[in-house]
């Protein structure tokens, strides 16, 4: 379990980090919490020549509210999200999701930016970000751009980030009105990652669901927003039979993953069951 030789630098500014990326190309890798990258390096499945360590770049950490938006630095750990009073009050889906990532050690080291950029098809955070309609700020040699979470995940461990771009910030809305959220996952028993994870937030006005976001992870090669389910739920009273019917749509157009931990068929089944359960849980919390 010894990685191939590599160099390690700790830039103090984003620009310095971007320059290092740009000049080393494919050979360089950003290092955040290291909890996805280092295991791969130890197995020599990844052999970067240079690690650009983000830990000294102060502006990458922290959680701040600005009017109806909350900004989360990419280097914020899962633990910080889990324990943030601000998020618990204004966007509780994120702490609910962070709470079930790995174990204490993993949450103390792993970062939200690392999780999103790594785009493991079974990671938890992407589901929550999709559900709340998060936006991601990428910064590269050409400057900054905002990306919608839905446009960010392109496929198995691939994102819309360019080779020299750094994910710096995530922007999520303050959830207002009568709302409810839930993240439910079936963990793969060895790794703790999601066999299926479903994140839901919904708003209820006069007993009707006016807005809903459903993010799904673990099921497909990339996490996705279950638009079909959302369409069917919007405007309804969230009655159980309607939730069931809508949830059965979650697997439409999806090709479920298949591995020793769960067959494609079982994953699809679990996705339907857990989508329904997550919507019901969120509805309950919204007071329906």
């Amino acid at each position: 379990m010894i990685p191939a030789p590599f160099d390690h630098i700790t830039p103090r500014t984003l620009d310095e980090a971007i320059r290092a990326l740009a000049s080393h190309g494919e050979e360089a890798k950003l290092l955040a919490g290291g909890h996805s990258l280092l295991p791969m390096m130890k197995l020599r499945l990844a052999r970067p020549k240079l690690l650009v360590d983000l830990s000294r770049i102060a502006e990458l950490s922290g959680i701040e509210a600005e009017r109806d938006r909350i900004f989360i630095g990419a280097l914020t750990t899962h633990y910080r999200i889990e324990s943030s009073e601000l998020l618990k009050e204004k966007c509780p889906l994120l702490p609910q999701t962070a709470r079930v990532i790995g174990d204490v050690q993993v949450r103390n080291r792993g970062t939200v930016g690392g999780s999103l950029a790594h785009a493991d098809p079974a990671a938890d955070m992407p589901a929550a970000m999709l559900a709340v309609g998060a936006e991601l700020l990428a910064r590269g040699p050409e400057g900054e751009r905002w990306l919608k979470a839905e446009d960010f995940f392109l496929g198995l461990m691939t994102t819309a980030l360019g080779p020299s771009e750094i994910l710096t910030k995530i922007r999520v809305p303050v959830l207002s009105g009568h709302h409810g959220t839930a993240y439910l996952k079936v963990p793969q028993k060895a790794s703790g990652f999601a066999i299926v994870g479903v994140a839901v937030w919904l708003r209820v006005e006069r007993q009707l669901c006016t807005e809903i976001g459903v993010g799904v992870t673990g099921l497909d090669a990339k996490p996705f927003r279950a638009r079909r389910v959302e369409e069917r739920m919007k405007g309804t009273n969230l009655a159980q039979s309607l939730v069931q019917a809508a949830s059965s749509q979650v697997t439409q157009g999806v090709s479920p993953l298949d591995d020793i931990h769960a067959s494609a068929e079982f994953r699809a089944h679990l996705a339907r069951v857990y989508t329904a359960r997550a919507i019901q849980e969120a509805a309950k919390r919204a007071g329906v």
């Binding site: 295991p39 793969q188 028993k189 060895a190 790794s191 020793i260 931990h261």
Partner: peptide, 16 residues
């Protein structure tokens, strides 16, 4: 060997 690491071979944890 498909269960060659503890990410694939499931040992019981305290919560189990």
């Amino acid at each position: 060997l498909l269960t060659g690491s503890l990410m694939d071979y499931a040992l019981p944890k305290a919560e189990d």
